[in-house]
Design a protein around this nucleic acid. Structure first.
Length: 753
DNA sequence: ACGCCGACCGTCCGA
DNA sequence: CGGTCGGCGT
């Protein structure tokens, strides 16, 4: 009996697939990680593939780490030479070696979103862009979108015609990119873009990696953007010994779990994979090993409302389990309170432990209310993602010191710390130095070194010089032999006076900051001790830049975990609570009022599908009749996604008639009718209660008077709904086809808003 | 140069 | 609501 005998037939086919492109459509919980790891093992042990020739790309460090561990457990030898890493780390590794070929220095900095924001702010100021009219946010969004699509500043500029806003965005993109280059820095998107650029411009570098990566696996393929697709395509297009292109590319994904369109994910990458790679083998993994029947059925029913999916049907041999629970609370406070009390009760009755639970929500802001209750009740918890450790001020400050030492061209880093702690160097001084630097085409830091000769700085030069010599001193130390990186951070804290200032302050907040800095020191020590190669300052800084909060999730700690639905992708929990299931919250109002609501709502629905399929044993959904958002009370009706789950799969914790009428209640959004109604007040008239009788066969998403769409008859108006035996009979007036009586479950009528 | 305070504002998801 | 920014006084 071999390890491959434990696989189901489809899994086995995927694992034993030999050469050529392979697309694995892996439904939620269908054991895709298992397939990937076994496939790697199979290639090494039975196809004599050198582990060195395998590249596996994931989206998070956590996924990469887990894959490494699992491969290690089943492969006899050589697992350490398999290259398993995220898109971004893969690119950084490649660029650290070859980026000088496209005109950057190999010690480049990586800018995070904060740095990008600071930079674009400078750019807007320089270009005199009125950020009231064109927000920095929208410019950054446009730049990021362009980069995701591999559009250069020059191409962007050419593509815009008369539109003022686009013209300004093009200008800003150009200047932004120029300044990144001057700072020898890459933003997150650049990591991919510049690697593609390198491969396009330098055949030698490309061939080097094509020869190295003979077998490529990509996880979560549905979330790749155009740039990432291009990267993978380039890498996989190597020539084998026989002079042929083999495309030994195996991608795993699920179009139903594509939830990152907003950051450029291109669903066509998975939908058109077979066209992009001729001769693709497609394997569907449709057996779910994770969830109960009830949970899986609910997920299937919800996602069935999306059109244009790859055809697949997830099933399970698992027990039916408990029905999905749904509760409509009075308020967000009740919701949080009740969910936490319920968890506490179950855990205290020894029926589960805290780390069996996840509370999922649409937006990070929703975590606060839970956190307050959890602290109050003294329950251990962990919130993923709300405030990234590395986004904290004190951490960013210390890192800026390290970046300045590492890459003096990094203007954002230097400017951040030039007056932190206070050295009496104010804005006017900084502006003068900056002007001088721009005029003489040098970095901000270099201008600082010449402060004494900058006109108008005769007085403040005396404050700048000690700063420069401090940095120089630290830098010299760094290049000494046997100098330990962990000493450097201590020296920075000491020489800058940063720690002394905090200690002198003595407030709770200052003490918090000190312990955060201690934590950063710990991370540096861990890095130095665990580094695979010689630990370097650049190495530490890039590890820090590319880490996400989810990477540090430790499932063995006995905590309730709270996170967004996005962060939960790829995870599973015995008990899952999805809260805030209200129109305007989930699906978000942004999607409801978007230019293309159909498309955006479908993405929200996929997110809902992801949420539901995280649950193994029990799934609880909840909504609140009203909740507080930015100091305003909103009245939202329950989410359409609740409505899309058939009634028979749910246990509803309220009277049936309240459940049915709740969907007809008023929805107030701060961005549309609500604000408007405050200005020109119209008394609110409740909509007619929908003509739906209580039943156990599911509810309709439309009522009498609504416009609905029929696949053949088009749009019509519902004039009557009657209960007929075990189904609804719906009467609809179609302008072109007249009045039709339709059976609801067959007719598939979709409501028009 | 810097700290305080009130006005204003923006609203999601994330490596 | 909570963060940021700009004006003002020291």
């Amino acid at each position: 009996m071999s390890i491959y005998d434990t696989l189901n037939p489809e899994q086995k086919r995927a694992v034993l697939h030999d050469k050529g492109p392979l697309l694995i459509l892996a439904g939620a919980g269908s054991g895709k990680t298992r397939v990937l790891t076994h496939r790697i093992a199979y290639l090494i042990e039975h196809r004599n593939v050198n582990p060195w020739n395998i590249l596996a790309v994931t989206f998070t460090n956590k996924a990469a780490r887990e894959m490494k561990e699992r491969v290690d457990q089943i492969v006899g030898y050589g697992s350490e030479s398999i290259w398993v890493s995220t898109f971004h780390s893969t690119c950084v590794r490649i660029l650290r070696r070859f980026i000088d070929r496209i005109g950057y220095e190999r010690s480049f900095s990586i800018y995070d979103t904060d740095d990008s924001k600071t930079l674009i702010r400078e750019v807007c100021k320089y270009l005199e862009i009125d950020t009231k009219r064109i927000s920095e946010r929208s410019i950054l969004g446009a730049i990021s979108k362009a980069k995701d699509e591999l559009i250069t500043p020059e191409e962007f500029e050419k593509s815009v015609s008369g539109d003022y806003m686009l013209k300004k965005q093009a200008e800003a993109y150009k200047e932004y990119q120029k300044r990144l280059k001057a700072s020898n820095a890459l933003d997150f998107d650049d990591l991919i873009v510049k690697t593609v650029e390198l491969f396009m411009k330098d055949k030698e570098a490309l061939t080097f990696y094509q020869n190295r990566f003979r077998y490529i696996m990509v996880d979560e393929y549905q979330d790749t953007n155009t740039a990432q697709f291009r990267l993978i395509h380039l890498l996989a297009s190597g020539i084998n010994e026989e002079g042929e292109k083999e495309y030994n590319l195996c991608v795993v994904g699920d179009d139903d779990q594509s939830i990152y369109k907003f950051r450029g994910a291109n669903i066509q990458n998975i939908l058109n994979f077979e066209k992009a790679f001729v001769g693709t083998n497609v394997i569907k993994l449709e057996q779910n090993y994770r969830s109960t029947k009830s949970i899986l059925d609910a997920a299937n029913e919800v996602i069935a409302n999306n059109i244009g999916r790859k055809d697949k049907a997830l099933w399970t041999d698992n027990d039916k389990g408990e029905p999905v629970s749904y509760t409509l609370f009075e308020s967000d406070l009740d919701e949080a309170d009740s969910i936490i009390s319920e968890i506490k009760r179950t855990v205290e009755n020894n029926n589960a432990s805290y780390n069996d639970y996840a509370i999922l929500y649409r937006t990070n802001a929703q975590s606060r209310i839970f956190e307050e209750k959890l602290i109050l009740k003294n329950i251990p918890y962990r919130i993923i993602g709300s405030v990234n450790f590395y986004a904290r001020k004190e951490i960013k400050d210390i890192l800026a010191y390290l970046k300045t030492i590492d890459n003096g061209l990094d203007n954002i880093a230097v400017k951040r710390i030039i007056n932190v702690p206070r050295r009496g160097i104010g804005l006017t001084t900084i502006d003068k130095v900056n002007d001088y630097a721009l005029l003489n085409e040098m970095s901000f830091y270099e201008a600082l070194t010449r402060a004494a000769s900058i006109p108008g700085l005769e007085r403040t030069a005396s404050k700048i010089i000690p700063f420069v010599s401090m940095i120089e001193g630290l830098r010299t130390q760094l290049y000494q032999e046997n100098y330990d990186l962990t000493e450097l951070i201590d020296d920075v804290l000491e020489a800058s006076g940063y720690l002394k200032d905090l200690e002198a302050e003595g407030s709770d907040e200052a003490n918090d900051r000190i312990s955060n800095i201690d934590e950063l020191i710990n991370k540096l020590v861990t890095y130095v001790e665990g580094a695979e190669e010689e630990p370097t300052l650049s190495g530490f800084l890039e590890e820090v830049a590319l880490v996400s909060d989810i990477d540090n999730l430790d499932e063995s700690t006995d905590n309730i975990v709270l996170m967004t639905l996005h962060s939960a992708k790829g995870l599973e929990f015995p008990y899952v609570y999805v809260c805030g299931m209200e129109e305007g919250v989930f699906p978000s109002y942004m999607s409801i009022y978007a230019d293309n609501p159909q498309e955006e709502i479908e993405e929200e629905r996929r997110l809902c599908y992801v949420g539901i399929t995280r649950a193994m044993k029990s799934l609880s959904l909840s909504a609140a009749k009203h909740r507080m958002l930015r100091g305003e009370t909103l009245y939202n009706k329950p989410s359409r996604f609740i409505h899309e789950i058939p009634r028979y799969l749910m246990k509803i914790n309220m009277p049936e008639k309240d459940f049915l009428t709740s969907f007809a209640s008023k929805n107030t959004s701060p961005f549309s009718e609500y604000r408007q109604s405050q200005r020109d007040y119209k008394p609110f008239v409740a909509p007619e209660p929908k003509n739906i009788a209580g039943s156990n066969i599911g509810t309709l998403s439309y009522g009498v008077g609504d416009n609905v769409k029929h696949i053949k008859f088009g749009i019509g108006k519902v004039t009557d709904i009657i209960m007929g035996g075990k189904d609804y009979e719906v009467t609809v007036d179609f302008p072109k086809f007249g009045t039709k009586k339709l059976i609801a479950s067959f007719a598939k009528l979709t409501p028009m808003d």
